[in-house]
Design a protein around this nucleic acid. Structure first.
Lengths: 217, 217
DNA sequence: CAAATATTAAAACAATCGTTTGATTTAAAC
DNA sequence: GTTTAAATCAAACGATTGTTTTAATATTTG
């Protein structure tokens, strides 16, 4: 666990942690600063005092969760010059870890569920101001993912590897953004159990590895 | 193409078609009835006159798109008693069609993109009132999908087949709800081309069939 | 302690929200 | 042609929105 940035401390952090889940559930327009102030036990003026505006608070909350649940494993792996991508075993191990990281950071109780919900919400409704956050989190991780997939399967074109990267991201993201619908479908009301997530991780890993012709053994 | 319902005609239809894309992009709270009235060239009072309230207009728009882009193929297939699920060929053909139907209805220019965007938005933010729409569209289609997957692969448990169904839905849905982020990642500004969608459909079909051990030949 | 700064508080700001009213116009029915 | 209903309109409703102001209170600094 890395340190939080200095900007995410004290009252600022409190406000982010209070407003965040509200934003994640109802969007920026679905939450009033009075509701945030009330639940956070601060005066309404504090929001503008600490963040300048409601929109800035939203953007800060977005930057905060993007930092928390970021998945830098792919970039780290790419820096390792000792990896031999010609052996199936290594490639399988890498892809397994890449999927595990995202299931852990997006879906497990390592972080509150609203972290990933707020992050993914910025994917569906990206006002101009949010693109900056996306550009520094989602895009680099995506590009690293594509690069690794290229090395694991050099015969594939970059276009095909982008499809594979989107498959990995999509499979996991679906359980975040469609969470209410999914729980309706499988008839549960509580949060995903660890057992469920373990099975899900296995399922996605198997699906992707098979697709990439990287079946073990 | 089936007929539209009587409730979706005239001024009501006009209002739905005007408000729909706004709702899909910004959510119910991100659009004002004055903006809708202005773009629709009607008086503000018309919205309450025709729908009773803004929320009802939103729900009607949701019911409208859910009806339009619904994917009833799975239910239809299940009614056909002549299908032999023990032959790989039939199973492959069925799953291909199921994926094609969703890519067509959700992503192609068969329908405006905001249809599927609004529908999927109801998955991420389902107020109590929207659950009703979900329950009559998303859930039955999902259940039928699971049932077909069970018949294609009787050795699988129902839990595993649910994962497979979610995989199919998730792979395609990702390109709807994360559309802005995806276009940022692959650096395009226009809508998905037919060529891109054709490749995407091939990719998802191959991915799912391989995962289900239904590789052709 | 005194001065300067940072934080909190209540109140009011203008603007916008969804909705309603009541009058007027259009269309349909007899 | 008269009557009845449907549709449209401008205007105003009270409530709520995000933000600002101004004063009071902590906190920190010298």
């Amino acid at each position: 666990m890395t340190e939080l940035r200095a900007e995410w401390t004290g009252k600022r952090l409190e406000l982010i942690e209070t407003a965040g889940p509200l934003f994640a559930n109802s969007g920026i327009d679905g939450v009033s600063i009075r509701e945030i102030a009330e639940k956070s036990n601060v005066n309404i003026a504090s929001i503008n005092y600490y963040f300048g505006s409601k929109e800035n608070l939203y953007i800060e909350a977005l930057r905060y969760v993007a930092w928390q649940v970021r998945c830098p494993l792919a970039q780290k792996i790419l820096q390792d010059k000792d990896i031999d991508y010609s052996t199936k075993k290594h490639c399988i191990s890498i892809i397994k870890k890449l999927i595990e990281e995202r299931v852990q950071n997006y879906l497990s109780d390592k972080y509150p569920m609203w972290y990933s919900r707020l992050l993914l919400r910025s994917l569906i409704e990206p006002p101009a101001k949010f693109e900056n956050v996306l550009f520094h989190t989602f895009i680099p991780e995506f590009n690293a993912l594509v690069e690794i997939l290229m090395k694991c399967n050099p015969r594939n074109t970059i276009e095909k590897c982008k499809f594979w990267a989107f498959s990995i991201l999509g499979e996991i993201s679906f359980y975040v953004f469609a969470e209410p619908g999914i729980k309706l479908a499988i008839n549960i009301t509580e949060k995903y159990t660890q057992e469920f997530l373990s099975q899900l991780q296995k399922h996605i890993t198997s699906l992707i590895l098979k697709g990439l012709d990287l079946r073990e053994g």
